[in-house]
Design a protein around this nucleic acid. Structure first.
Lengths: 246, 246
DNA sequence: TGTACATCAGTGAACGCGCGTTCACTGATGTAC
DNA sequence: TGTACATCAGTGAACGCGCGTTCACTGATGTAC
């Protein structure tokens, strides 16, 4: 009976989850981003060799952890974005970036694992992690396009871009000469992404003066609103966004 | 004779330098940010134990490497900045940020060591690394103040800052109520710093779409000029800056 | 100028440790007739 | 319903490895008289 097979499979998957969560917990507790198979086994009260029933190698666990971390941020951001009313796109963006920041602060080691320096001696298999990685940026940058559609975003013309940045903004899938969306939109979206990563990196890795780190929430909020404003997002739409506690 | 003592000391210091540069080379070659004492010894053709004549422990070598890396970026930025004519401050800033980026791209592992996620199980002694760390930000952010003095930078009033970010911008040494420079200046400088770190992080750690990574120089230049412009730096001063190849 | 002595550089063996992985195994769980 | 068999979960010992660090040592370099 396949119901029984499923019970077996469910048990197996439950243990896989246990292993991953032990690894995650160990990473936040010990702070080691180079994760330790024997320590995971110890945590679970198993023999180290038992883990090989569930993962073919240590690196496979790392890959799973990385994918999970990307998924976790992605999910947090998507959820925050979804809570904003559909006509309040600027609010949604602000909710999304705050969700990103909150997740990063609550999971600094997982954040470091995916957005910090790469783990030595390990190269993530791109096909496994890329889709999860893109969730966050897709969610946030997609909203910027929606801002433009809703007339909340007044872009400069593509002509305002220096000639030498154009190749940086033409993507493989693009119909050459007839890009799917204004290049200025992409430029602005990428710069928004840079500010966002920069603000979170600087805070999580503590590359800012102490008072700024202590009042990080307010300054982050201010920085992201400024970023939206200089992109050309309607100021009233920005002012309407997210008062809830960050 | 103390001349002889000096010769001894010089030999000693020369070996210290050899060790550090072997460690540095090993880091860039093997890519391991968790550096390996035995590998360094191998590289130098010495017994591992010999290194203890020069450093008390592995961590001490790491600390030296971190300090050196900060000093290296700091020096590169300072040198670039110094080459610009004193009345062309915006040019100097642009030269400085390009020097920063160039160094980061040429030394990605050293960059990761100081600006990426912290090395697991190691906490840098702040008093040793902090002065070196501040060289870069001091050099660049100091220039922004000079921009203001030279009338190249029109700041918004402090009143434009949301009330809740003010505590983030008041620093320990400040005379309360009578800050040494406009808080708006600090806000703007910190945001510039965030954009700079974000742009370099995103490029070095590859959190941008491929075309942007391939044409990173042009886009970085554009991003930093935009950042200066939205800060209120005079557009003509920006346009005058740095054409030399990045 | 020569000799006795102290200091330093570097060796080589050894320490204990923890790691990732393998292997042959034992029980328990589920399957087929 | 009972029994023979296959599959899976997990054990425990062992593998080879490389790590950081210690220790007693040997030569070479410099010092003092």
């Amino acid at each position: 009976m396949s119901g029984v097979v499923n019970r077996q499979q469910r048990r197996h998957e439950a243990t896989v989850e246990e292993i991953k969560s032990a690894a995650r917990e160990l990473m936040t507790r010990e702070g080691s981003s180079s994760l330790n198979l024997r320590a995971i086994a110890r945590e679970l009260g198993m023999a180290p060799s038992a883990l090989y029933r569930y993962f073919p190698s240590r690196d496979a666990i790392l890959t799973a952890l990385i994918t999970e971390a990307y998924d976790a941020v992605g999910e947090a951001v998507e959820a925050a974005v979804a809570q904003a009313p559909p006509d309040r796109t600027a609010t949604a963006v602000l909710a999304g970036v705050h969700a990103f920041r909150r997740w990063a602060r609550e999971h600094p080691h997982e954040y470091g694992l995916i957005y910090g320096s790469p783990v030595p001696g390990y190269e993530a298999p791109v096909e496994a992690t890329k889709p999860a990685e893109l969730r966050t940026s897709d969610a946030l940058l997609g909203l910027l396009s929606r801002c433009a559609e809703q007339g909340l975003l007044t872009l400069p013309g593509d002509a305002s871009l220096p000639a030498d940045v154009l190749p940086a903004l033409c993507w493989p899938g693009d119909d050459p000469g007839r890009p799917p969306l204004p290049l200025a939109m992409r430029a602005v979206a990428m710069q928004f992404w840079i500010v966002l990563l920069g603000a979170i990196d600087a805070e999580v890795f503590r590359h800012l003066p102490a008072p700024l780190l202590e009042h990080g929430g307010a300054f982050f909020d201010h920085t992201m609103r400024r970023a939206l404003a200089v992109m050309g997002v309607d100021q009233r739409a920005i002012d309407a966004g997210v008062s809830p506690a960050w």
